[in-house]
Design a protein around this nucleic acid. Sequence first.
DNA 1: ACAATTTTTTAGTCTTGTCTAAATTTTATT
DNA 2: AATAAAATTTAGACAAGACTAAAAAATTGT
Lengths: 219, 219
Amino acid sequence: MLSLAEENYLKAIYHLGKFGTISVSTNAIADKMATKASSVTDMIKKLAEKELVVYKKYQGAKLTENGRKLAASVVRKHRLWEVFLVEHLNFSWDEVHEVAEQLEHIQSEKLINQLDAFLEFPTHDPHGDPIPDKNGQIKKTDKVLLAQVKEHEHCMCVGVKDSSKEFLKYLDKHQIALGTQFKVLSKEAFDESMILEVHNKPLSISKVVSNNLFVKSNQ
Amino acid sequence: MLSLAEENYLKAIYHLGKFGTISVSTNAIADKMATKASSVTDMIKKLAEKELVVYKKYQGAKLTENGRKLAASVVRKHRLWEVFLVEHLNFSWDEVHEVAEQLEHIQSEKLINQLDAFLEFPTHDPHGDPIPDKNGQIKKTDKVLLAQVKEHEHCMCVGVKDSSKEFLKYLDKHQIALGTQFKVLSKEAFDESMILEVHNKPLSISKVVSNNLFVKSNQ
DNA sequence: ACAATTTTTTAGTCTTGTCTAAATTTTATT
DNA sequence: AATAAAATTTAGACAAGACTAAAAAATTGT
Ligand SMILES: [Mn+2]
Ligand SMILES: [Mn+2]
Ligand SMILES: [Mn+2]
Ligand SMILES: [Mn+2]
């Protein structure tokens, strides 16, 4: 049984280390968790003791298979709860994260399996992020950043890279949601801004935006 | 913002002190929370500091109006989650308590209000206990212990006093649930056992059972 | 290769919530 | 009223998780 703090550290290492495949530096973890490097060192040692991470002094931490599974289970819970909040409790996609941060720590196998069934086994959360299965596996999709799409091509919004409140509200304002269709009308070489056709109207977006929207090319 | 521990203490004092109306002894709290009296003393002092309880040395603690409201809000969340688990996630009434103990600490006004609406504003939890409203008010019902019912009278099961897994499973085994109709066929003076008519069949129950079932008389 | 800078660890402290053992106060009994 | 018993508080310690300041190791720049 893990403490709330331990679960949060595992999750941070999971996200920073590409699902636990690469080693993550103390400072990177401290940054992500808004804590201090010294606190991270302490915690990594405890996690290493429990064989959830491999830790070598000055070399950062990498998840073990066991650590990876536990982290994925926390992410699974987080994303399933986000789906619940949006689909059934009238939350918008910019409101769910804080609450899911709390709900992801509820301990009950039955709860999460029944929730999964109640939601009809969703594969993605409200931000387009994949939901790990019971074994902690995610099937990776072929999404690409909008910034990569060439002029005159059509694509569909399938996710956000930045899921901050601010960005999500910006998208709402421009009526961009998961499933929205884009056509790249033109790209400006100077500042890498783009003009899209969205809902039959032109929309100019900056590189910052196109770099934070995932899309799927229409064939 | 209260810590999880503080919320649990408030809840214990609320339940032991008749919704915060009477003072509760240190030992009683320690017992209910499976902790030690010295720990309780420490915590009561902190709660008194925050003006959530009134504390006089050697005289126990009583909730303030503010403490009562906060405790009721925790109880409200606990019971709403229990309804959700039973009505939508296929939990049985003996499985919900442990999970609700965790869920009751999730902090989000919107979450609990939306959950309330999603559940269509239930007034009672799966054990027949009343759900406090947003202001922490509960409307008390005129339920009575089955042990009090006279011979030949009819009544309906509306709640349990003991909501332990063991008792709830005993009731399941005998097909007794909220809403089940009883007729008191006879009462044995010797051991105060009772013979009921339930689902058109006679059932003999001990005083322990009749003392833990709440019923409403049929007029 | 060596100095300067950055990253990471260590040492020591703090807060929260818990515990045991001892002291104190209250309550019950004679 | 005095004493015994029970309840409560105090004192001191501990574990988890955080922090600051200082030391040590790794990295970077010349
Ligand atoms: Mn999230
Ligand atoms: Mn998400
Ligand atoms: Mn309960
Ligand atoms: Mn209940």
